[in-house]
Amino acid sequence: MTFWRQVYEVARKDLLVESRTAEVALMTAPFGAAALILIPLAIGTDAPLLSQLGPGLYWIVVLLFGMLVILRKSAVDGQAQRDLVRLLGIEPAAAFAGATAATSALVLFFEVALGPILIALYNPELRGWPWLFVILPLVAIGMGLLGTIASGVTTSIGTRTSLTPLLIVPLSLPLLMGATQALEGLRLGRGIVPWLILLFAVDLALAVSGVLAARPLEEAVT
């Protein structure tokens, strides 16, 4: 079986499991939406201020609530399932890539689901909006990679998944910075290429780290 076929099957399985539980659609997305709705209530009806703060707040909500999305991987596979995948001879890098693809797709769905609320409540300037087709996937892939790596680390050292955010939040700061600054750059009509390069570089570094660490992390499980 080819590497990419394994990636496809692992991702398909993870998305099928998610489609049954619908945790992202029915729980995480509404929670994230609630957070975006509550913030204007706290700030007040200062429309220009909301418009200015909106994109930044959106990314903070995506990062914090997206944590719930990316941690789902730890809950999907128990030891028996992980043993099964190992005995089936699935390439660890393929399992990593498949899990990342599924998680990234879910984060992207989460980002898109929050978009209309951002627009309706914050009325941000949408200058250069086609760039969102690049920025949103880059952030989603970065978070998917982070979640899969963190899941592998917590599983291999046998720690509780509740500690995983401590691993993820600091590492996700470059993603937050790149995403917020890219949108700010679009709003002010500045160039955003350096921020896109930052997002791409973070994704690439995480992808290389994840692929290299996949086998050692898998074999470290007791």
Partner: peptide
């Protein structure tokens, strides 16, 4: 490894 099957006491199935 792919020549080994282990049926553990916990099911290697995805519940959903």
């Amino acid at each position: 490894r792919n020549r080994i099957v282990m049926v553990g006491h916990l099911p290697g199935l995805w519940p959903e």
